[in-house]
Nucleic acid binder design. Structure first.
Lengths: 261, 261
DNA sequence: GTCGACTGGTTCAAATAACAAACCGTCGGT
DNA sequence: ACCGACGGTTTGTTATTTGAACCAGTCGAC
């Protein structure tokens, strides 16, 4: 792991529930040496990616990130473009829908929306990176993303998120193959307990998935009726999102989705 | 300059007018070695801070930035909080208003708004970092920010943006001292030709400016009447922004502003 | 075709940063 | 006053990053 990756990985420890992190906590979270972490934190702070709370000495995400995000959204307004589609589908299904983009060997949430019509709901943290082998989105990414994604992932140890997570190499290969045939991925409690989800790939201008659109619901609400509804609507939504982002769905997948409908 | 700073500085070359940058262009812009730049770009890409256009091989800002920006805005919704105040002041004055936060030895635009009631307007690029010695915001920051900011800046060579930019050490010191007495900074065409601007500091919970609020107008429209109006309203707006961000204006500055009114 | 000038991308001695463990100063609790 | 935990710094040794030169592909002119 290079220096830059180590430093940037520090930023990934922030989440909705952890807004401010101190030196020692960073050391525990990252497993790196204290002196190294401190130098990295200082350098990130000097560049505005972090800022330090003068009182607690803790570190927070800094203003540079906002500035860059504003640039990115102006040039490539992905969030703004997909938001209405995500909200529409979430409304139709009454469940949480999210679009995520690939970020190395994880998925990064781009936008999510929950219609909130039910008492119980799926907790979704936009700050958290999604693992490829444990989520429906991940499986869809492995099936339709860059071809070297799966082989590279299989070389690492697959960490279980729940007792249901696929950790066996062979099983993962088969499951991904299945997703490739179906054009849609289904995972039952693989990432969070009592949550089931479906996902379909979203494409850029290459025939290679750049991200996914997914529906997540409490397992108890994931009835056959809802499953059928999702299978019928998710490929359409994936096509719409792909088109909004200026991409094209590969012809073979388009055929799979048409035949399924 | 450390590795991390070098890598992160690459990101600062993006702007509204330059959305995609190739390897060679990065080398020219940063003055670094090509191999180094390439390794940095690869590592940034692997972490989702950049993404590569498969066709042109150029690099764009990546999805990780959006994810982190979403976290930061949820935890510390500065942009959302200051937006109405900026828009209100811009409406009252009929000119461009922006709030910026300190990012190392530059200022990083947080939010800006232009009422657009005039035919000509000031061009403002939210992607561009503002230098401390050439802008009104910068002078306000030097006057009320961390005490070591000015001495550190004086050790470097002051780059002129226009023919009006202060580049002399002594003159800069005197000007900052003046700003410290006035509680407001005025710069005439120091950053962009034919643009004049005022700025006042904005504070966090320490008696040390964390940013600024500024008004920029074409020099031809910067009449005595407008100047008087800005001098009367900007300190109030700075106080409001400070309070919105949960900060406090130091007592001595509060007195200066009160006496001026 | 063959040049040349331009890309993006990759190798291998030499400069630089990471590492581990120790240390310093400060804060809050006992 | 003591203790322990915190943020931060220092030092000598080890590993990584660096940068000049080197490939390879692509475009256009001749």
């Amino acid at each position: 792991m290079g220096t830059i990756t180590k430093a940037l990985s520090l930023l990934n420890h922030f989440s909705a529930s952890r807004s401010e992190i101190g030196l020692t906590e960073f050391r525990n979270l990252s497993g790196q040496d204290k002196a190294t972490v401190h130098r990295h934190l200082s350098e990130l702070t000097a560049n505005g990616f972090l800022e330090q709370n003068p009182g607690t000495k803790g570190y927070r995400l800094g203003p540079a990130i906002l500035r860059l995000a504003a640039v990115r959204e102006r040039l490539f307004p992905a969030r703004r473009l997909v938001a209405p589609l995500v909200e529409k589908l979430a409304g139709e299904l009454g469940e949480l829908v999210h679009v995520s983009l690939r970020e190395g060997d994880h998925l990064s949430p781009l936008y999510h929306f929950d219609a909130l019509i039910h008492g119980t709901r799926v907790y979704f943290d936009e700050a958290e990176l999604l693992p490829l082998h444990a989520t429906a989105s991940g499986l869809a990414m492995l099936a339709f993303g860059p071809i070297d994604l799966l082989p590279k992932l299989l070389k690492t140890k697959l960490k279980p998120s729940t007792g249901y997570t696929i950790t066996d190499t062979e099983l993962l290969k088969q499951t991904v193959e299945q997703v490739r045939n179906d054009g849609i991925a289904f995972v039952d409690q693989g990432f969070e307990e009592h949550v089931s989800s479906f996902a379909s790939p979203v494409f850029g201008d290459l025939p290679e998935a750049i991200g996914t659109i997914a529906v997540a619901a409490p397992t108890v609400r994931m009835t056959d009726a809802l499953k059928a509804k999702i299978r019928a609507t998710l490929p359409l939504a994936a096509t719409e999102v792909t088109e909004k982002l200026g991409g094209i769905v590969p012809v073979d997948l388009r055929r799979i989705w048409r035949d399924a409908a």
